[in-house]
Simulated scan of single mutants.
Amino acid sequence: MDEANWTSISEFVFSGVSDRQDLQPLIFAGLLATYLVNIVGNFMLLVLMWTNPQLRTPMYFLLSQLAIVDMGTVSVILPEALVHVLNKHRAISFTNCMVQLFIWLSMGNMGSYLLAAMAYDRYVAVCNPLRYATVVTQSLCLKMVAGSWVVVLLHALLDTVMVARLRYCGNHLQLFFCDLPPLLLLSCTRPITIELVIYTEGVLVMMTPFAFIVSSYIRIGLAVARLRSAEGLRKALVTCSSHLTVVILFYSTATSPYVYSDSSDTKENERVAAVFYTAVAPALNPLIYSLRNKDVAAALRRTGRKILAWGK
């Protein structure tokens, strides 16, 4: 395409969660409720971990980092989405779009790396329980978290810089936030080099933790298969059930943007799927860990009794 046909973009316009005007009040209420559940649930989880010495362990340190990432993920997307539900002018400046993209990529990928670190924690807890305290230390968890942040921030920065350098022929994003696939679709020319870098490097960054999680659970499965006692099997399932549930929820929703085609009749489904992986899934994580975890439930009861005692 000629240089003259390229459009200088100062802002992007979102399509919103849905085109149906009669559903906007219901969408606003649903997004607001999901946002509040996420923030309140994850914040309560953090308070429990900070105030209960029983939860100051490597596993709960990793879980606290996941709670922070979940809150960051929804906070960079949902507040603006809520405003746009009530406002027909659903625009975001070019700069703010790139900032949102950078934070979204950082938080989203950091979630997968934290789940990988938690998978290693569960592997050691099941396969080497006697060595757990010496292998999975606070120092190791800090190093894993710090290293993960370095990887995901560099990955997000590379993708954001390359996308910011693209030439755009339009500014209408078929989504309610700035993400890579809809931005690449607006490029005037086929950015082969940029797409090649984004998808090869991106797949490597995203699939590495997934492959690690799968290999960890294969080893856990082999170890569980060798157990002869029903009690040992039950303990292994209890140890891994919450984490495995979160992993399945995370990856089943995170891969949804790449399932749909580019045809117009799938755009509505794609936007609905985006609500699940940006809003619903992060909100369910604290519920899964609080409802299925005896330590968290016990800490919640202790904190509740303390609050009641202070009120008297």
Rank of each mutant, 00 (worst) to 15 (best):
L114S: 07
L180H: 05
Y168N: 11
L142D: 10
M110I: 11
L154G: 07
M118G: 07
Y120S: 06
V152R: 04
M162W: 05
G108E: 01
S106P: 06
C141G: 00
L183F: 02
L153P: 09
L115S: 10
A91N: 14
F102S: 05
R167N: 14
M118V: 00
A156C: 02
V161E: 03
A119G: 04
M107C: 11
S187G: 09
L101I: 03
L154D: 05
Y120N: 08
C127R: 12
V99F: 15
M118W: 11
A146M: 13
F94A: 05
L105F: 01
M98Q: 14
L184M: 05
L157I: 09
A116P: 11
G108W: 02
N96S: 11
V151Q: 12
A133Q: 14
V124G: 02
L142P: 04
V136H: 01
A156L: 05
G170V: 01
M162V: 03
Y132E: 12
Q100H: 15
M107R: 07
L114Y: 09
L183D: 12
V163D: 01
G111H: 05
S139W: 07
H155N: 12
C127S: 12
V136Q: 05
S93P: 05
R122F: 01
S106E: 11
S139I: 10
S139Y: 04
Y132I: 03
D159Y: 02
F94W: 14
L166R: 08
L130Q: 15
R167M: 04
M110N: 15
L140A: 04
A146H: 15
L101N: 02
M110C: 15
V99M: 15
S106L: 04
S106G: 15
L173A: 04
F177P: 00
T137G: 04
Y113M: 00
A91P: 08
A156M: 00
I103A: 03
L173P: 09
N171V: 02
L158M: 15
C178R: 04
H89L: 06
M118S: 08
Q138W: 11
L140F: 05
H89F: 08
F176Y: 13
L115G: 06
S148Q: 07
M162D: 10
G170H: 08
P181W: 10
A133F: 09
S148T: 12
C97H: 03
Y120I: 10
A125G: 10
G170Y: 08
K88L: 12
A146Q: 11
R131F: 05
H155Q: 09
S106Q: 08
T134V: 06
R122E: 01
A133E: 15
L105V: 02
Q174A: 08
M162P: 06
V163E: 09
C169Q: 15
Y123C: 02
L173C: 09
H89Y: 14
